[in-house]
């Protein structure tokens, strides 16, 4: 596969540059360990890192599911009720001015050191991109399709509004929702890890903070590497899934 080979080459160049930097500057390993040292640490702490990775992975996935569900629900509500849109949408935009990270200590205070506060953190951070993208899609339905649907449902008992939402507006907005979900997949790990930094006893964020405090920078980097790997895997899995589910969506970049 061409994309995979290109990614591997880019990664190899990055690792070589990193190792080169370490050799040239002779920097202490507790400031910046080389990739080889990190790899050794990863191999040595596989079980430890794996355990914490599972915790973080579960937090990310639960956060994604929960945040996306809320986002989809609120986008449909906002599009269905004009009054809700008029009152809540400005409020929703204003709440985005509050850095969600600043809420992390409060969430830990309210929901405890366990998983709930991290799941909530991840949900909160992806809620808005999903809502905004989906609502945008619901708003931009091709007017011709709606006109056609109006002539088809005119004179029948039902208003046709629900039928239009279900059969035209929502399917037409799915590519926009997919864009929102891709953003969500990219930022959800940030939410989970920040939640872990603020207060936890498990997860990669906790492990990184712990390793940092004990000058085990190689372990910190190993955990970071696994976190990045996980985030990339989540993104590409979701991207692949969305492409499979929306085969009718044209991709004009595909053949470039």
């Amino acid at each position: 596969m061409d994309t995979a080979r290109r990614s591997l080459i880019s990664l190899a160049i990055l690792l070589a540059g990193w190792q080169g930097l370490v050799w040239v500057t002779q920097v202490e390993p507790f400031i910046l360990p080389g990739p080889w040292l990190v790899a050794l640490s990863l191999a040595g702490h596989l079980e430890l890192i794996g355990g914490h990775a599972v915790t973080t992975l579960v937090e990310i996935i639960l956060g994604l599911v929960l945040g996306s569900a809320f986002g989809v629900f609120s986008a449909i509500s906002l599009s269905w009720f004009p009054n809700v849109r008029r009152w809540l949408l400005p409020l929703l935009v204003v709440t985005q001015a509050i850095p969600v990270f600043a809420l992390a200590p409060v969430l830990v205070l309210w929901l405890g050191y366990g998983m709930a506060s991290k799941v909530m953190m991840a949900s909160l951070i992806i809620f808005f991109p999903v809502t905004a993208a989906f609502l945008d899609g619901l708003r931009r339905t091709e007017p011709g399709w709606l006109d056609l649907a109006r002539t088809m449902t005119a004179g029948t008992a039902s208003s046709g509004r629900w039928a239009m939402l279900r059969h035209i507006r929502i399917p037409a907005a799915l590519p926009a929702l997919a864009s929102g979900l891709r953003v969500a997949a990219a930022v959800a790990p940030i939410g989970a890890v920040v939640g872990e930094w603020v207060g936890s006893s498990a997860g990669l964020g906790y492990l990184m903070l712990h390793a940092n405090g004990r000058m085990q920078i190689d372990l910190l980097f190993a955990a970071l590497f696994v976190l990045a790997l996980m985030a990339v895997a989540i993104y590409f899995t979701l991207d692949w899934l969305l492409r499979r589910l929306l085969p009718w969506q044209p991709d004009s970049l595909a053949n470039d």
Binding site: L148, A149, M152, T153, T156, G160, A163, M164
Partner: peptide, 8 residues
């Protein structure tokens, strides 16, 4: 058959 679907 879109019309029928829209009209239920």
């Amino acid at each position: 058959t879109l019309g029928a679907r829209l009209r239920g």
